[in-house]
Design a protein around this nucleic acid. Structure first.
Lengths: 217, 217
DNA sequence: TGAAAATCTATATCATGATATAAATAAAAT
DNA sequence: ATTTTATTTATATCATGATATAGATTTTCA
C-alpha cells in the first residue's frame, strides 16, 4: 500500500472513495459468488478501476479481506447500538454474542471467506484487535457493575479475553470444525466461563445454568 | 485426497510412508526458508516424489499445512508428558501454556506459516479441535481436583474453552497483532480467567495476582 | 504367472495473485 | 497558464497452486 507520497485533501478524499468503491465491489462479488470468492481481475472490473489499483490501495487480496472484516465488526457494533440490549454486563455480553454471531450467520460462506483472512500471516500486521476489544468493551458497558473481589483494574482483561475467545470460536467455525449452532454455544459458554470468575457469588448459579459443553463428535 | 479406492496393508503402509516423507520434506523446507514458505514444486523435489503426489495424498497445500499443525500439537503433548509438571490443574494448565507457546516460539515464522492454515476456510473440515481438546484435558488432568460449586459435568467445558482461547491468542499472534511476549501473557491471563470461576474461593487471589491486561498500543 | 487395479510420474495447461513498466490522467505547485 | 507531482491505467510477465492426462510402476488378485 502506497503510504509514501503525501496527499492533499482532494487527493486523499479521492483515494478514500476509491477504497470504498473497491470494498463495495468486493462485497457485491462475494455475495453473488457460490463459492464466496472473487478474483482480483473480477474485482477491478466490478469496481471500474484498473487492475493494479486495489493493490495500490491495499497491498494484497488478503488485506482487502481484512478491511472487509473490519467492516463486519463495525456492523456488529452498529447492531448492538441499535438494539440497546438491557441488563447487566453479563446480559449485554450475551446479547453481543448473539448479535455478532448473527451477523456472521447471515451469510456464512461470505463471513468465512472474509473473516478467514484474519488469522493469516502477512507482511504487515492486521489491526483488528483494538477494534475487537472495543466491541467487547461496548458490550460490557460499565465494568463496575460487575460485583466481585476482582479489582477494577483487573477487569480490564475482560474485553481482551472475550475478543480472544470469540476469535477462537470463529476460527474453528471457519475451519469447519464447529457447526453454526455449535459456534453459538461455544461462544456463549466461553463468555460465561470467563465472566463466572468476575460476578457476585450469588449470580454464579444462573451463569452455570447457561453453560454447556459441546458434544464430542 | 484420494480416500476412494480401497487399500491393502502394503499399499496403505506405502501411502503412509509417502505422506510422512512429504511432511518431513515440508518441515525441512520451511525451516530452511527465510520466508517460512515453500512451493509445491520445491516440495515434490525435496521429497523425491512426483509433483502430483502431495496433492494425491493431501488434496491441497493448505491441507499439508494442517497436517503439519497436527504434528505441532502432538509435539506440545509430548513435551508436556516429558516434563511432568507438578501441581494442581491450574498449575498444569499454566505449564502446558508455557510449553505450547514455547513450541511455537522456537520457530516463530514457521509456526505462523503452519498454524496460520488452521483458520482458513477450505473444502473439507480440519480435524484439530479434538486434538486440541485432548491437549488441554491432558493438562487439566483429573478435573475433580478443581474444587468449586461447579458440577463435574460442567467442568467438561474447560478443555474446549482453553482450546478456543489458545486458538484466539495464537490467531492474533499470527496476524502480527500480538508480539511473542504478549501472546504469552494473553494466554496465561486467559487460562486463569477461565479457571477463576472454577477454583476454590481461597485460591482466587493467587490466580488474580498472575493475571494482567495487555498494554493497549 | 499374467491380468487387473491402484498409484505414481512427467508434462502440459490454466487460473490467479502479484509485480513491473510506460503512458495517460488528475491534482497541486509555480 | 504551465510545470510538477501523484495516481491511475493498460498490458505484459512471472510464480505458484491446482488440474488433467497418458504412460510407467507397483501391488493385488485370480
Amino acid at each position: 500500500m502506497t503510504d509514501g507520497p503525501s496527499s492533499s485533501p482532494l487527493r486523499e478524499r479521492n483515494r478514500q472513495t476509491a477504497r470504498d468503491v473497491v470494498l463495495d465491489a468486493a462485497e457485491r462479488l462475494l455475495q453473488a459468488s457460490p463459492s464466496a470468492d472473487f478474483s482480483m481481475r473480477a474485482l477491478a472490473t466490478e469496481a471500474g478501476v484498473g487492475f493494479a489499483t486495489p493493490f495500490n490501495h491495499f497491498g494484497s487480496k488478503n488485506a482487502i479481506m481484512q478491511a472487509l472484516s473490519s467492516r463486519v465488526i463495525k456492523r456488529m457494533a452498529t447492531r448492538f447500538r441499535e438494539q440497546r440490549p438491557q441488563g447487566d454486563a453479563v446480559d449485554r455480553v450475551l446479547a453481543m454474542g448473539r448479535i455478532s454471531v448473527g451477523v456472521l450467520l447471515e451469510k456464512p460462506d461470505v463471513s468465512k471467506s472474509v473473516v478467514g483472512s484474519l488469522g493469516v500471516a502477512g507482511p504487515s500486521p492486521s489491526a483488528v484487535l483494538p477494534q475487537s476489544e472495543a466491541l467487547w468493551s461496548l458490550a460490557l458497558g460499565d465494568l463496575s457493575t460487575l460485583s466481585s473481589d476482582a479489582p477494577i483494574a483487573l477487569r480490564a482483561v475482560l474485553p481482551q479475553q472475550l475478543a480472544f475467545t470469540f476469535r477462537g470460536c470463529v476460527s474453528f467455525w471457519i475451519a469447519g470444525e464447529l457447526t453454526d449452532e455449535a459456534m453459538v454455544t461455544a461462544f456463549q459458554t466461553g463468555a460465561l466461563a470467563i465472566l463466572l470468575g468476575f460476578v457476585n457469588p450469588t449470580r454464579r448459579a444462573a451463569l452455570m445454568a447457561q453453560m454447556s459443553p459441546l458434544p464430542i463428535p
